[in-house]
Amino acid sequence: MTTLFIDGDACPVRDEACRVAHRHGVPVVVVANGSRPMRRSEWPNVTMVTVAAGADVADDWIAGRIGGADVCVTNDIPLAARCLATGARALSANGRVWTPDNIGNALAGREIGRHLREIGLNTGGPAPMGKRDRSQFLNSLDTLLTAARRPRPPMARPP
């Protein structure tokens, strides 16, 4: 069964994701470390998990439980990479679908940005979410949940 995992700390599309998952009949697990207040979800398919405070504690919780039929919503590129490594699907809050083909470049770009900030350059940060981003997110999540619920074709055996 497919489960939608949401990296809940600072997720700007949590409510939208829960609504789409409810429509698909998919359970949702919102994981956060409690650094920001989280209000209870109105959706019956949503479980809220509060983990201990600390760097990557929520990420570790998700990465330790996500499986190949699942989907994760996260803006954390390393967490997305960890999810992809399990065979799961991942997407960002602006609707960018992470794949094995694009995650390497995203990780490299993240490291370059980190290095530039360390040497004192301002990298600007992410652009604010707009209507177009939310629409792209909704379309991408709908597509990923539909795909995740279909059985994957068996892998071809090497000759």
Rank of each mutant, 00 (worst) to 15 (best):
residue 64 G to T: 15
residue 103 I to G: 10
residue 40 R to V: 10
residue 37 P to D: 12
residue 83 C to P: 07
residue 79 L to T: 04
residue 97 V to N: 01
residue 46 V to T: 13
residue 52 A to M: 07
residue 89 R to F: 06
residue 107 L to H: 13
residue 30 V to S: 08
residue 79 L to F: 07
residue 62 I to F: 09
residue 82 R to F: 02
residue 56 D to I: 07
residue 62 I to D: 09
residue 50 T to G: 00
residue 100 P to V: 05
residue 38 M to E: 10
residue 86 T to Y: 02
residue 53 A to I: 13
residue 74 T to L: 04
residue 57 V to E: 14
residue 48 M to R: 12
residue 87 G to M: 02
residue 109 G to T: 06
residue 74 T to K: 05
residue 54 G to S: 13
residue 65 R to L: 08
residue 65 R to F: 06
residue 47 T to F: 05
residue 49 V to S: 04
residue 63 A to I: 06
residue 108 A to G: 02
residue 51 V to S: 12
residue 97 V to P: 01
residue 58 A to Y: 09
residue 101 D to H: 05
residue 42 E to W: 00
residue 81 A to S: 15
residue 74 T to Y: 04
residue 75 N to V: 04
residue 41 S to Y: 02
residue 106 A to V: 03
residue 37 P to N: 08
residue 99 T to Q: 03
residue 78 P to H: 11
residue 77 I to G: 11
residue 43 W to S: 10
residue 72 C to M: 15
residue 93 A to S: 15
residue 62 I to P: 01
residue 102 N to S: 04
residue 107 L to S: 15
residue 87 G to D: 02
residue 105 N to E: 12
residue 79 L to A: 00
residue 92 S to P: 00
residue 51 V to A: 13
residue 86 T to K: 11
residue 62 I to G: 09
residue 75 N to G: 15
residue 64 G to F: 10
residue 53 A to M: 14
residue 61 W to M: 04
residue 48 M to I: 05
residue 51 V to H: 10
residue 60 D to H: 14
residue 59 D to T: 09
residue 68 G to Y: 01
residue 64 G to H: 11
residue 87 G to I: 01
residue 33 N to P: 08
residue 39 R to F: 07
residue 107 L to E: 14
residue 72 C to E: 05
residue 95 G to E: 08
residue 63 A to R: 04
residue 71 V to L: 07
residue 77 I to D: 09
residue 84 L to A: 06
residue 40 R to Q: 14
residue 93 A to E: 08
residue 37 P to Q: 11
residue 56 D to M: 10
residue 39 R to Q: 12
residue 30 V to C: 13
residue 64 G to E: 15
residue 85 A to E: 08
residue 31 V to S: 07
residue 93 A to Q: 05
residue 66 I to R: 07
residue 51 V to Y: 09
residue 36 R to L: 12
residue 106 A to T: 06
residue 45 N to Q: 12
residue 54 G to M: 14
residue 84 L to T: 02
residue 66 I to S: 06
residue 68 G to D: 11
residue 89 R to W: 03
residue 56 D to Y: 12
residue 55 A to I: 06
residue 76 D to N: 14
residue 85 A to P: 00
residue 69 A to Y: 03
residue 53 A to D: 14
residue 66 I to A: 12
residue 83 C to K: 07
residue 40 R to M: 13
residue 92 S to R: 03
residue 72 C to V: 15
residue 43 W to I: 01
residue 53 A to T: 14
residue 88 A to K: 15
residue 56 D to T: 09
